[in-house]
Design a protein around this nucleic acid. Sequence first.
RNA 1: GCCGGGGUAGCUCAAUGGCUAGAGCGCUGGAUUGUGGAUCCAGAGAUGGGAGUUCGAUUCUCCCCCUCGGUA
Length: 375
Amino acid sequence: MTAAVRWSETARDGAARAGNLTTPHGPVATPAFMPVGTRGAVKALDSRDLAEAGAEMVLANTYHLMLRPGAPEVAGLGGLHGFMGWDRPILTDSGGYQIFSLDARVDEDGVAFRSTYDGSTVRLTPEEAVAVQEALGPDIAMVLDVLVGLPAPRPEVEAAMQRTLRWAERALNAHRRPDQALFGICQGGVDPELRAASARATAALGFPGYAIGGLSVGEAPAERDSALAAAVAELPPDRARYVMGLGDTEGVLAAIARGADLFDCVWPTRLARHGKVLTAQGDFSIRRREHAGDDRPLDPDCRCRTCAAHSRAYLRHLRVTGELSAHRLLSIHNLTYTLDLMEGARAAIEAGELGEYTARVVGARVSRDPGDALP
RNA sequence: GCCGGGGUAGCUCAAUGGCUAGAGCGCUGGAUUGUGGAUCCAGAGAUGGGAGUUCGAUUCUCCCCCUCGGUA
């Protein structure tokens, strides 16, 4: 029987690779970026917006969907694909990030959350996280993991890494659905030794794909890059590598250069809702007064609907006055920018010139706003 | 006209005869990375005008101006 999800390389440029991820709901060209639709919706957008922006795969969240509307409810409505009206690939995060972001109580058995909806206590174990995701029905499910904010003492980082490993094995043993892939997750903070050990041990369990988690939680870019490289070196070359929670231009390009294939991040969409615009010339805030009388588009070279139809002055007006369409229009733009960046990286890898592409992209992103310091 | 209330930041309001006149909202910027339409941080910004008392007045006194309410 063929696996539910397979990744195969189509081109290589140094450590970077382009490839094809096949899933029950179709292929995904990698490197790929997944917009985040935590509650079964990418905020402010619908499926058509996502497809037009170029998204091939989206992410949803176990914790949020098990609370509302509930996994059985989603299962009864056609699973996530039917429920969301998205017939392309879906990946669900396990709820591991919520252990971190909601400061949940963790013990060896699992985690106790306080529901963000009604305050009640909700327990989740590695086995239950798998069961919930089997009910939700994404193409790819993630193991429940434990991540710690950085900087953190090494013993704490190591303990979270080891627990993640034990939970990964439990999750793997609990996983039943043959038409769904379960990905393992490496932890280990920014310590290259812990990262390597985590990746090696996770890989030994034999997952169809691997995530590198626990990054973009406070570490410096250089630390992140070395941790990433240390993990990638221990992962099998024929499986997809997914860097969780990374989405800024420079960070993604650095990760692609080190062999990452898959990304998800709230960055483009959250920034959009806050009025921050991503462009090839540099990022800026549309709320700035200087855009008030500007009839130019956000980015003259952008193919998105927002840039085709609206001026900076209008978009600023929408944002400043709190019109809902600001969220939608800026989200469409920022996602288009990020997805086009991935496409550019794929083409560059195929052409064997990722280094040149990265230098060109990063070099062109010179801030025109005095307050916007780029990394 | 008369009686009364009131003029402090863009707005709505505090406070005080003595250290740098505060707050909320708004405004100008910043942060944000497996979601945070949230939130947090920083900044700019004011005592209606004049005279007097006083070592010192936004505060007390007088005049003017403006405003709100009542009244003929």
